[in-house]
Amino acid sequence: MGPDGSDRSPNRFLRPLDVVIVVVVTALGIWSTARLFGAPSGTRAVIWVDGRRAAWVPLGGETSVDSVRGTLGAFVVEHGHGRIRVLRSPCPGKICQKQGGVHRVGDKLVCVPSHVVVVVESESGTEGDLDAVP
């Protein structure tokens, strides 16, 4: 009880506006962190063969398998559930196969001997927030 007789003791519970502010601030924090450091996930991948676009494949939806012909032979990728990986490649070292799945905009899977490069993109373009990652 205050000196004027009113009860000004702090409310033990958050008022509705406080809840809104907390939710908005938290969401903004998560969004900005993800934007700055998580790098956006791609929605599709473009497959380049010898500097020419050979195919676009979606990363969303169920897993499916596609194949393009590189200079050394068939290059098979599995894409879906937001990721893409190389299933089979004619490259001797199989480095791109060992790399596993990728999903971030700008991520690449490269089979140099067969001149194949897979690049993850977003529908709105290839850059995401970053111009490149060395």
Binding site: L36, F37, A39, V102, G106, L130, D131, V133
Partner: peptide, 18 residues
């Protein structure tokens, strides 16, 4: 400006800085 990421060496699908 050009914005370039620095890869996280232990989670290469993420960056540790820009």
């Amino acid at each position: 400006a050009w914005k370039l990421g620095v890869k996280n060496p232990r989670a290469t699908d993420q960056v540790v800085g820009t």
